[in-house]
Write a protein that binds this DNA or RNA. Structure first.
Lengths: 206, 206
DNA sequence: CCGAGCCTTGGTCCGCCGGCCAATGGACCC
DNA sequence: GGGTCCATTGGCCGGCGGACCAAGGCTCGG
């Protein structure tokens, strides 16, 4: 590899800086976090931070780029392991939730701080987010193609509602709590797949 | 009424100020919104704003207090109109979503800016939020009490996932879009109640 | 007509934060 | 060993935003 001929001349890994930033952004929010705090948490001086990320927004943007990249790779790897389109969705759910809950805080930041991006940066993130959502859209269409999905289910709406349920978990999940993220993912999948009402109680719905 | 003997000596209604603030908080976020902007949007001067809300956090707190109060009242009114515990949930869902999507922006601010509160203010909001969630908890237990809910459904988890799905709608809903909020609420209820998979496809789940 | 509160005015103050930079250090190559 | 380039240093600056306040004025009871 030619690109790594001079491997990491930098004192501190970029990933470490972004991880430190993500943790702070999650705890206090992007706006309330100062660059001095990020630098201190990363073990460098403010000037060095500026050298790598000329603007605060740049730092957030790069962090989010990596988060969405991680998400995509994680889901891709998960669905490669099975062929059944319906089971693939369960695996993708697990992968998404695992990265959101047990990974670093980058995915959390991606989901809850995108409003701090303005103009072109915002546009870029919207584009990347759309790509990730398209991945899911494909999964859902494939599952519907098997004929095992109820008629009349709006796949786009389903995806949006599902994202909401899953992403919101990050706001209440406590590591070491009653349930693991796999259990949460599977329970959600069971509720949504089979329904929470007994079939005989269908009169109560819709 | 003795408390209103001197009705509104103030030039601008408190509600108008909070509404203006909520709109800005939704658009730009709490931290990026300056008190000068809020004052200007409300048609008063910064000093007057300070007279009513000594600190910026106080403004946010009062706004959120009203939002949770609105939510509670709205859901209470909705469930009073029917007696069937299962149907009540659908009505409560509709009420929650209606206020979130077509009301002012206070509920949105309540849901997405609570991280800007610190210390005692944060604690108070957590308490109020817990009260609102207890209202839902009661609805779910009542529904389960009818025996029409599948065995093994974790009601607390269901509530948390449901809140996520519904609250997240605020991030993508566009007024005048393809679906009304009633349609979204009912679709969600149908998906979750009956499931999205055909019963014969149950092997694909869990 | 007068006095007393209550609300508004329209600035000022002060600390903080993002952005910046000249100088330093040190690693690597010729 | 000397030159070059890159990363780091650590302090500076300009602006902004939250907090504040003394003075003014409106309203209402007396």
């Amino acid at each position: 590899m030619t690109k790594n001929e001079r491997p990491e001349p930098r004192a501190v890994d970029d990933a470490a800086i972004l991880a430190a930033a993500a943790r702070l952004f999650r705890e206090k929010g992007f706006e309330r976090t100062t660059l001095r705090e990020v630098a201190r948490a990363a073990g460098i001086l403010p000037g060095s931070l500026h050298y790598r990320y000329p603007a605060k927004e740049e730092l957030l943007l790069e962090l989010m780029r990596r988060a969405v990249s991680l998400l995509t790779a994680s889901v891709r790897a998960a669905i490669d392991e099975c062929r059944d389109p319906v089971e693939r969705i369960r695996q993708a759910l697990r992968a998404h939730l695992r990265l959101l809950l047990s990974g670093d805080d980058m995915v959390f930041t991606l989901l809850f701080e995108w409003r701090s991006l303005r103009g072109p940066a915002r546009a870029e993130m919207v584009r990347l987010r759309d790509q990730y959502e398209a991945l899911w859209e494909g999964l859902l269409y494939a599952a519907a193609g098997t004929g095992r999905v109820r008629a009349g289910v709006d796949l786009q709406l389903l995806r949006l509602l599902g994202f909401g349920a899953v992403n919101w978990v990050a706001t209440w999940y406590a590591p070491g709590g009653r349930m693991s993220h796999e259990q949460i993912a599977d329970a959600f999948w069971a509720y949504l797949g089979l329904g929470v009402l007994k079939p005989s109680a269908e009169r109560g719905a819709a």
